[in-house]
Design a protein around this nucleic acid. Structure first.
Lengths: 196, 196
DNA sequence: AGCATAAATCAACAATTGTTGACTTTTAGG
DNA sequence: CCTAAAAGTCAACAATTGTTGATTTATGCT
C-alpha cells in the first residue's frame, strides 16, 4: 500500500521524465518572464500542456518547483589562468554568456525577478555569490580586499542584468555583447584587480 | 445628488488629509519592503490603522495607489556647476542621498521591486531615466555619446541599488556612504565623462 | 495478452485577493 | 443646536490562488 503523498522523488517511466522536464522548462521561462508571484501554477501547467495537479505531484509545491527551477552553476572561469589585463573583459563576457547563452539558462533572471519580493530568492542569490563568485575572486585578490571587491563586482554585474533583462533600459538593451564587454570591461578590471 | 463612485479626487476635511497621507506612507513602506504583489491592500490598511475600503475610496484601486505612491523627483544636480573631476563622486553621493535620505523617500526601491514583475513599474523607471537622468547628462556629454553613457550610469546606479537594498549582498550593505562614494565614484566618473 | 503500478485527469476545496455597497459615525457651517 | 455631507466601518461579493483526493487512462513487465 503505497501511501506517500510526498512529491514524486524519482521518475519511474521514460515519458514521465519528459513531462517533468517540460514543467521545469515552462517554469523557468515563466518565472523569468513574470517573477514568482505572477507566474501561476496554472499558467506553468498550461505552457507545459499538462494538468496543474502534475506540478504539485512532481515538485510538491510551487516553492519546491521554484527552488528546482532556479538552481544552476555559473561555471566561472579560473582567473589564475587568464592574463591579468584581460580578467575584467573575460568576466563580463562570461556573465553575458551565462545569461544569454545558447543553453537559454535564464534562471538567474528568474531569481533576480523573484528576489524582488521573496527573501528566499534573495538569499539564493547571496548564496550563489558567496559560493561561486567570492571563491573565484579569492584566488586572485588579497583576502583583506576580498569582500569589498566581490561586492563591487556584484554591483556592476547585477546592475547590467537588471537594466538589460528586467528594466530593459533602451540603450543597455541596444548594446551588443562586444560593446558591453568593451565598455564594462575596464570597470570590472578595476574591481577585480585595479587600484581602489 | 453626488453619485460619483470614482476615487475621492480632493480631500475635504483636515483629518482626511492625515489618513490619506497615512495610507500613502504605509503603501510606500510596504511596497518597498515586499513589492507590488505581496503588499496587500489589507496589510497597507492595517499599517495605516484604517479600513481596507478606505484605500480604494481614496485611490480608486491598488494600482492607483501604487502609481501615486511611487511618483517622485530625483532632484538631480546641474552637473555644469560642478567641477569636472568631482562629477562622478557627486552623482553617487546624490543617489545615496535620494535612497537613504532623511525624507525616507524609498519609492525608488518600491519601483525597483515592483518592476521585477510589472511592466508598468519597469516602464515608470524607464521614464524616470529618460526624463531626469538623460536630460541631466545631456548638458555635459556630446549628443552622440549620450545614450551609451546614460545606459552605463544606469547599470552602475541600479546595480548599487539592487545589491544594497534588494538583494542585500553583505559586503555592499556593510559599506558606509563615504566608502561607496570613494569606490564607485571613479566608475561613475568614467561613465559621465571619462574615456570610453 | 493481462495485470499491477505509475501517470494523468477532473472537479472541488479552503484561503486569500481586490473591490463594492449599505450602513453608521463624525464633522463643519448656518 | 441641527442637519447635510463627508469620513469611516462592516460584512459580503466574485475571482483567483495553491493544493488535494478520487477516478480514469496509459505504461511496462512477465
Amino acid at each position: 500500500m503505497p501511501d506517500q503523498p510526498a512529491p514524486v522523488t524519482a521518475a519511474k517511466t521514460a515519458k514521465s521524465l519528459r513531462t517533468r522536464a517540460a514543467i521545469l522548462e515552462a517554469a523557468q521561462a515563466l518565472f523569468a518572464e513574470q517573477g514568482y508571484e505572477r507566474a501561476t501554477v496554472r499558467d506553468i501547467a498550461a505552457r507545459a500542456a499538462i494538468d496543474p495537479a502534475m506540478v504539485i505531484r512532481y515538485f510538491g509545491s510551487k516553492e519546491g518547483l521554484f527552488t528546482q527551477a532556479t538552481t544552476f552553476d555559473l561555471k566561472l572561469p579560473d582567473l589564475t589562468t587568464i592574463a591579468k589585463r584581460r580578467r575584467g573583459a573575460v568576466l563580463v563576457a562570461h556573465f553575458l554568456e551565462v545569461w544569454e547563452g545558447p543553453l537559454g539558462n535564464s534562471s538567474l533572471v528568474s531569481l533576480l525577478r523573484a528576489a524582488a519580493s521573496s527573501d528566499d530568492a534573495a538569499n539564493a542569490i547571496r548564496t550563489i555569490f558567496g559560493g561561486q563568485v567570492v571563491p573565484m575572486l579569492a584566488r586572485v585578490v588579497p583576502p583583506a580586499e576580498l569582500p569589498v571587491r566581490a561586492g563591487l563586482v556584484a554591483t556592476q554585474i547585477m546592475g547590467l542584468a537588471v537594466t538589460r533583462y528586467v528594466l530593459k533600459v533602451p540603450p543597455v538593451v541596444a548594446m551588443n555583447r562586444e560593446q558591453i564587454v568593451r565598455l564594462l570591461g575596464p570597470t570590472m578590471q578595476r574591481y577585480v584587480g585595479g587600484a581602489l
